[in-house]
Computed example of a mutant assay.
Amino acid sequence: MEVVITSGAQESAQFAADAIEQLLSRKPDAVLGLATGSTPLPTYDELVRRQQAGRISFARARGFTLDEYIGLPADHPQRYRNVIEQELVGRVDFAPGAVTGPDGLAEDLPAAAAAYERAIAEAGGVDLQILGIGTNGHIAFNEPASSLASRTRVQPLAPQTRSDNARFFDGDVEAVPRLCFTQGLGTIMEARHLVLIATGEGKAAAVRQLVEGPVSAMWPATIMQHHPHATVLLDEAAASQLEHVDYYRETYAAKPAWQGL
């Protein structure tokens, strides 16, 4: 796992966008894993700028979202299919239908989860997965005690997650759905490159566990310690509880530029 301490959300976004730009330059038909929530928004804004400037194109790329609320109406602004359309897909040159997510309105939820898992595999797997981290250590909606080998499935949301996400529902925690679809930890770990972004002091405890704690289902993101190519982009506040922060700075400063992220 590579830990990179940045000057803030915008520099983290530039690093993440650099990784995606380099991927698309060598593999225009790359498969991207797209997170929602507030953390990746600066990255998506940076990608839009680069696409509009002619530096990158998504015309041959595909994308899969990490998760989806179950039961929100099709036109609900917080339905993740709508969020990713508004924040990225509709602003760049993805082909129609190139980005998909789990069907939160499916009649047969287990069948829909299995179909989504198959769709990712049939696309050749995810080349680069953007991730955030929850205050309780979840990635995607894999809540504490999720199996480290889990696959795409229906997942009840933890009270902490619903409380954290109430800000997207006008502060009303009761408006936050109780069930979701999520890619499993085993599914996420099959992506070829994981890029996790964390900003703010509120994420510092989860980041400490992610980077320096033991691998545990109680802190699901810690499974990333077993990934062969995982990048963690942190601002100063998110990195504030790390014991070996100076080491991470020194090793990144000594890294050859040609290696990239």
Rank of each mutant, 00 (worst) to 15 (best):
P144T: 15
P144D: 13
A145D: 14
A145F: 14
A145K: 10
A145W: 14
S146V: 11
S146H: 12
S147N: 03
L148A: 14
A149F: 12
A149S: 14
A149H: 14
S150P: 04
S150E: 09
R151W: 14
R151V: 15
R151A: 13
T152G: 01
T152M: 05
V154G: 00
Q155I: 09
Q155Y: 03
Q155T: 09
Q155E: 03
P156F: 05
P156K: 01
P156M: 10
L157P: 01
L157T: 00
A158R: 00
A158M: 07
A158Y: 00
A158F: 01
A158H: 06
P159H: 12
P159D: 14
P159W: 12
Q160W: 00
Q160G: 07
Q160K: 03
Q160F: 01
Q160D: 15
T161P: 10
T161V: 02
T161Y: 01
T161A: 02
R162M: 12
R162H: 09
R162E: 03
S163K: 08
S163P: 05
S163H: 11
S163C: 05
D164F: 06
D164P: 08
D164E: 14
D164G: 15
D164C: 13
N165S: 07
A166G: 02
A166K: 02
A166N: 08
A166I: 06
A166H: 05
A166D: 01
A166Y: 01
R167G: 01
R167Q: 03
R167D: 04
F168I: 04
F168H: 12
F168A: 08
F168C: 02
F168Q: 07
F168T: 04
F169D: 01
F169E: 00
D170V: 04
D170H: 12
G171I: 03
G171Y: 05
D172S: 04
D172M: 10
D172W: 11
V173H: 03
V173D: 08
E174A: 10
E174V: 03
E174Q: 13
A175I: 07
A175R: 15
A175V: 06
V176R: 07
V176C: 06
V176I: 11
P177H: 08
P177A: 11
P177Y: 06
P177W: 03
P177R: 05
R178G: 04
R178T: 11
R178E: 07
L179K: 09
C180W: 09
C180T: 14
C180I: 02
F181V: 04
F181G: 07
T182N: 12
T182D: 07
T182I: 13
